[in-house]
Every structure is written in C-alpha cells, then in structure tokens.
Design a binder for these strands. Sequence first.
DNA 1: CGGCCTATTGAATTTCTTCAAATAGTGTGG
DNA 2: CCACACTATTTGAAGAAATTCAATAGGCCG
Lengths: 251, 251
Amino acid sequence: MNLTRADDGPSPGLNCGRRNSSSSVGFCRKCAVQTRAFCAALDDAALAQLEQLHTICDLADEENLFTEGDPAAAFFTVLKGALRLSKSLPDGRRQITGFALPGEFIGLAAEQLYVHNADALTDVSLCRFSILDLERIGEEFPKMNSRLLAMTNSSLSLAQDHMLLLGRMNALEKTANFLCGLIDRAAAADQPTDPLALPMCRADIADYLGLTIETVSRTFTRLKVDKIISLPEHNRVRVNDTAALLRLAEG
Amino acid sequence: MNLTRADDGPSPGLNCGRRNSSSSVGFCRKCAVQTRAFCAALDDAALAQLEQLHTICDLADEENLFTEGDPAAAFFTVLKGALRLSKSLPDGRRQITGFALPGEFIGLAAEQLYVHNADALTDVSLCRFSILDLERIGEEFPKMNSRLLAMTNSSLSLAQDHMLLLGRMNALEKTANFLCGLIDRAAAADQPTDPLALPMCRADIADYLGLTIETVSRTFTRLKVDKIISLPEHNRVRVNDTAALLRLAEG
DNA sequence: CGGCCTATTGAATTTCTTCAAATAGTGTGG
DNA sequence: CCACACTATTTGAAGAAATTCAATAGGCCG
C-alpha cells in the first residue's frame, strides 16, 4: 500500500505547509528527533512511507499554533524550540499545563477539537501530520499506535505529577521542582545545565506553578539568599546546591 | 490465530483471578460496560478471542488494587464501583488525581511500574488483563489500540482540566466544579442525580481539590447558606440552583 | 538618554490552613 | 433497644502563606 497525504486545507502558522518531504527523500531518517519521536517505532521502509504524509511548519516566537476549541485538523512533533500548552478560565486566569520540547508530540485530541492552547515560546519548527491520516497510519503501522499510546501515557503521568505539585506543594517546593525538571530535560536534550536557560518569562513560570509572578520572584530571591541558586541574568540560573534543591523539590 | 492468556502470577486483591471467561462463553458480550469500555472497538469475533484473556477481580471497600512503584503486571477495566487514584509526597501529603468509574480503564503505565495508587472507594469489580497480553492485543486488533489511545487522550484532557482547577480556582469554584463533574458522570452512568450520592469522604474530596477537609466543609456550608445546595445527609447532595452552581464551576 | 517592559521589593489584605473543640453519625456490646 | 465508643464532619479562632496593590529597579531598544 502507498499512503497518500490527506489534503485538509490551510494550516495555522506563517510558514506551515512547506513540503520538505517531497524534495528530499530520506528527510525523516536524518531528522534530529527521530529516535525520540513517535516515529521511532518505525523501520526504514515504513518511515519512507510516513515521510510522504508530513509537512514542515515554522512558528515565530510567541506565535499561536492552535487554540482551545479549534477544530483539531493536525497533530505535530516538535523538531526545534519549545511551546507553551495552556488552558484558561473565562476571566483570563491561565494555567500552563506543560511545555512541549523537541521530540514530543502535541495536538492529539480525543474529540475533534483541540483541548488547550499551544503557543511558541521560542522560534519553533514542527513536523505536521493531518489528523485524517492518523487512523490510516494506525492501521498500517500498529507499532506506531503502541508508541503513541506509550507517549500519551507518559504525558498523563507527567500531568499527574503536576497535579500533585499544584495541589499539595508550597511555593518553594513548586519552584525547586520546576527548576529540577528543567535541568533534567535540558540534560536529556544535551543542552547546557550549569548556567541553565529559562526560555520562559516569570508570568509563564507563575502560570505553570499556580502562583503569581510576585511569588515566583520572591521565591527565586529566597533560593538566592539561601545560596541554593544564583541568577546571573533574569533568564539564566546557576544551581549551587543541587542536593538542597532536590530535597526541596521532593517535598 | 488463537490468543492464549499469559500467566503472570498472582494478582492483588482478595478475589483476583476468578475465571468467569472460561465458564460462560459470551460473558463479554453481556458485560454491562462493554459499550463504554476499551473493548467497545471490537466485533463479536474479536471479543470472543479477547474474552479468553481476561479474569475477573473483586475488591472490598478501601482495599488497595496497586501502589505507585509496584511492577505493572496488569491493567483493568472497572466493571462496578469506584476507585481512587492518588499520588503522595514522602511526608504523606496526598493528591487524588482522579476517580475511576465503570467503563474506564486504569493501570496502563508507560514504563514497567505503576505511576499512582489505586484504592477501592466502594466494593469494586474489575476486568483484568495481563500487561504481557497488551502488545499482542494491539497487534491483533489495531482498532483496540486506537481506542486505548483515544481513551488515554481523554484522561489526559481531564487531567489538564484538573490542573486548571488546582492551580487557578478558589475553594468555592473548585467545590462547585467537583459537584458539577459528579452530576455529569452520574447522569452519564444513569445514576440518580437529584439526591446526588457522594461515594467519597471529605478527606478524599479535599485531597482531590487540593484543599483541607475543613475548607471543604466550610465551602459546603457556604453553598448551603447561599441556598445553592442542600445536604440531606453528609454523603448526599441536592442541588437547588443548578445555574448558580454551574456559574461558579466555570470560574 | 528616555521610554517601555519585565522583574523585584514592600506593605496591606485575603484566603486558606492549622489547631482546637463541639456535634452528628455509625456501629457494637450489653 | 439503648448506652457507649469511635469516627467523620462541622464550626470557631488564630495564624501563615500567598495574593493584591503599589512602587522601585533593571534591561533593552529606539
């Protein structure tokens, strides 16, 4: 069988729909995140077929990829950059439910509508698949469905960890946990951790931890005063006492 | 192909391992939750095969099904009753991440270990599958994997809603949201909603909402004083002003 | 250099928690 | 069937943590 790409109309994002796939055969095999993404389950032959279905999609800093309630036309693998996933209450209060990093996929919804907002935190590059192709992909490549399931389960587990944080940790523990999580993920992506980069602003951190920006700021200051971290720049953290930070992060 | 059941040793729970399947052919087709459970994706022939793999498992009130960190040997569909899913910090602070009701499945972990605790809230009856069979089930019945994926995505969406609640709602909104959610689920399961049953105690509600039992109690009292609800019994709620409750629940 | 945005700091206030006590409900043994 | 004990729930008062409002400091860009 030869899979052909479903045409599902225009995509969000300025640069969505570029077709790297058709111009460069073997694109997927050279993909930087291929070993971590959901397509890691596939062998070369299957990968070559899947390659026909994807498009590349670029977003600038702060650009919106999709919004809660939008028809869910596509799902994405993050190739480069980071996105912010969030939900909001009618009056504007916002909860960031997670940050999507390279290798992770976003946009799979149980129903036909996206369940949260996705916004670019940095310049972002995405690998896009039509949701119309998902069912066929699943039937053609059962391994892929298993992998999607495993990755979704892993997101669910992270979500549950985060519920514990939101419901039962204090500001200091939340912040320490956030920093430890960032360090782990930076390390996993072979990015520097000693001066750890904070790709998001205080408001994003606050909305991720269920705090206000003032409380986040005060908590950073407290960690600084206690000599557990230092802040060479607003968006850069140096951890002086990893053990102490971990102790706080565990509750 | 004929699927045979993987033997993975003893199961938790007093009455685990009863083999209804072998004694009554067509058991699955008569199952009360079959249309809602993950096996709803299967046709009769596939269902008959799957039937060979399951065992029935009963738990008494407050009994533990599995604990965070246990080897994940099996996953379950709730047939009857309700379970409490929770995670805890080392010092005992607990967050209930959800309640599992009939038709839902629990125990699927991305890694080999369970990621949370599951305890019976009432007497519970479960349909048990060995995790060893999962991979084969997925390959044999691709539709089943799609359905598992959709159901997991739906759990993930609920988890994200709950993060918004935990991080950004106040006690009144949290409680109203909790009650509205219970009403919806009771209605979906064709259970009475006017005197709505609360199968869990105040401590469980508190740990679900990220509050203390005292705050939950005070909030119930406040809703009562405002004539939005009444409490004929501690475990029974009557909603007098659904519109007001919904308004609060939305934030 | 000035303006603008983000982050930090301070003071007052609110919400929720903690600690303590009273009340209601439930089950048990006599 | 009742008294008693035990537990769950409610209520009250004091305290703590985080928020809100307000002002200041630090960066960045034109």
